[in-house]
Amino acid sequence: MKKSDLPVKICVQCGLPFTWRKKWKKDWDNVKYCSERCRMKKD
């Protein structure tokens, strides 16, 4: 699968798009943040 074919979401904290990663394979529906930094900064 090409990277351009991977699913994309928008980070709820910073608003930037991020693509699917293998580590999120089992929990992709619940991923809201693009990084640990954004997750810890949630307001």
Rank of each mutant, 00 (worst) to 15 (best):
K2I: 08
K2C: 10
K3D: 13
K3C: 04
K3Q: 09
K3I: 09
S4G: 08
S4N: 10
D5G: 09
L6K: 07
L6N: 04
P7M: 04
P7F: 02
P7S: 07
V8Q: 13
K9G: 05
C11P: 01
C11W: 05
V12D: 11
Q13E: 13
C14E: 10
C14V: 07
G15W: 07
G15E: 08
L16C: 05
P17L: 07
P17H: 02
P17M: 06
T19W: 12
T19S: 15
W20Y: 14
W20A: 00
R21H: 09
R21M: 14
R21G: 13
R21I: 07
K23W: 07
W24E: 08
K25F: 09
K25E: 13
K26N: 14
W28G: 05
W28Q: 02
D29W: 04
N30P: 02
N30D: 13
V31R: 00
V31N: 00
V31G: 00
V31Q: 03
K32P: 04
Y33G: 01
C34G: 11
C34H: 02
S35M: 05
R37A: 15
C38M: 10
M40D: 12
M40H: 06
M40W: 07
K41D: 15
K41C: 11
K42P: 00
D43Y: 05
D43M: 05
